[in-house]
Lab assay of single mutants.
Amino acid sequence: KEMRNAYWEIALLPNLNNQQKRAFIRSLYDDPSQSANLLAEAKKLNDAQA
């Protein structure tokens, strides 16, 4: 469930391009235990690109 939530949050971040989203989501599938960390990194990048 945590992975699914992280997937959708990443997919809906407005300032990431599709390539960036795909990279984060690929990492999510590679290591679901890192969901919270990956989401935090994606949000950080999203904010930096705002």
Rank of each mutant, 00 (worst) to 15 (best):
K1T: 11
K1H: 15
K1L: 13
K1D: 15
K1M: 09
E2R: 01
E2K: 05
E2D: 14
E2V: 05
E2I: 06
E2H: 07
M3R: 06
M3T: 13
M3W: 15
M3Q: 11
M3N: 08
M3F: 14
M3C: 07
M3P: 03
R4I: 14
R4G: 10
R4F: 13
R4W: 04
N5E: 15
N5P: 03
N5D: 15
N5Y: 15
N5I: 09
N5L: 14
N5A: 10
N5F: 13
N5G: 12
N5K: 15
A6N: 06
A6H: 09
A6S: 07
A6Y: 06
A6C: 04
A6F: 10
A6V: 05
A6D: 03
A6M: 08
Y7C: 15
Y7H: 07
Y7P: 02
Y7S: 09
Y7I: 15
W8A: 07
W8L: 13
W8C: 05
W8E: 09
W8F: 12
W8I: 11
W8R: 11
W8G: 04
W8K: 15
W8Q: 08
E9G: 06
E9S: 13
E9H: 09
E9M: 15
I10D: 00
I10P: 00
I10S: 00
I10H: 00
I10M: 02
I10N: 00
I10V: 05
I10F: 03
I10R: 00
A11V: 12
A11M: 09
A11I: 15
A11H: 15
A11W: 15
A11P: 02
L12M: 10
L12E: 07
L12S: 12
L12R: 15
L13S: 05
L13Y: 05
L13A: 04
L13H: 06
P14D: 06
P14I: 08
P14A: 10
P14S: 09
N15Y: 15
N15I: 01
N15F: 12
N15T: 04
N15G: 03
N15C: 03
N15D: 05
N15S: 05
L16T: 00
L16S: 00
L16E: 00
L16D: 00
L16A: 00
L16M: 02
L16H: 00
L16C: 01
N17C: 03
N17S: 13
N17F: 08
N17W: 04
N17H: 10
N17G: 11
N17A: 06
N18A: 09
N18T: 05
N18D: 08
N18K: 12
Q19C: 15
Q19N: 12
Q19V: 12
Q19I: 10
Q19Y: 15
Q19D: 13
Q19W: 10
Q19L: 11
Q19R: 08
Q20F: 02
Q20A: 03
Q20E: 06
K21R: 10
K21M: 03
K21V: 05
K21L: 03
R22F: 09
R22A: 05
R22L: 13
R22V: 09
R22S: 06
R22P: 01
A23I: 12
A23W: 12
A23M: 14
A23Y: 11
A23L: 13
F24N: 00
F24K: 01
F24A: 03
F24G: 00
F24Q: 01
F24H: 01
F24R: 01
F24S: 01
F24T: 01
I25R: 03
I25H: 08
I25M: 12
I25G: 02
I25E: 02
I25D: 01
R26G: 04
R26A: 10
R26Q: 11
R26I: 09
R26L: 11
R26S: 07
R26E: 10
R26H: 10
S27Y: 10
S27C: 06
S27P: 02
S27V: 08
L28C: 01
L28W: 03
L28Y: 03
L28Q: 01
L28F: 03
L28P: 00
L28V: 07
Y29P: 01
Y29V: 08
Y29I: 10
Y29T: 06
Y29L: 07
Y29D: 03
Y29N: 08
Y29K: 07
D30N: 15
D30L: 15
D30M: 15
D30F: 14
D31W: 08
D31V: 06
D31S: 07
D31F: 13
D31T: 04
D31N: 13
P32F: 12
P32K: 05
P32T: 03
P32W: 08
S33R: 08
S33L: 09
S33P: 04
S33E: 05
S33H: 09
S33V: 08
S33Q: 12
Q34V: 07
Q34D: 07
Q34C: 06
Q34L: 11
Q34I: 10
Q34F: 08
Q34T: 08
S35T: 06
S35D: 03
S35N: 04
S35F: 11
S35Y: 14
S35H: 12
S35G: 10
A36K: 15
A36P: 10
A36N: 07
N37V: 12
N37P: 02
N37Y: 08
N37I: 15
N37A: 04
N37K: 14
L38V: 14
L38W: 04
L38G: 01
L38A: 05
L38P: 01
L38M: 06
L39I: 09
L39P: 01
L39V: 14
L39Q: 03
L39T: 05
L39A: 08
L39N: 01
L39D: 00
A40R: 13
A40S: 11
A40E: 11
A40D: 12
A40V: 11
A40Y: 10
A40T: 12
A40W: 10
A40L: 12
A40Q: 15
E41N: 09
E41W: 11
E41D: 09
E41L: 11
E41C: 05
E41T: 06
E41M: 13
A42I: 02
A42W: 01
K43D: 02
K43A: 03
K43Q: 10
K43M: 09
K43R: 15
K43H: 15
K44G: 07
K44V: 14
K44N: 05
K44I: 09
K44D: 08
K44R: 10
K44L: 05
K44W: 11
L45D: 02
L45N: 02
L45H: 03
L45I: 12
L45C: 03
L45V: 12
L45A: 06
N46D: 06
N46L: 00
N46T: 01
N46P: 00
N46G: 02
N46A: 05
N46H: 02
N46M: 01
D47L: 14
D47A: 15
D47S: 14
D47V: 14
D47F: 10
D47K: 08
D47M: 10
D47G: 10
A48K: 13
A48G: 13
A48C: 04
A48N: 13
A48M: 14
A48E: 08
Q49H: 07
Q49C: 04
Q49N: 11
Q49M: 10
Q49P: 04
Q49W: 07
Q49L: 12
Q49K: 05
A50E: 14
A50Q: 10
A50H: 12
A50D: 09
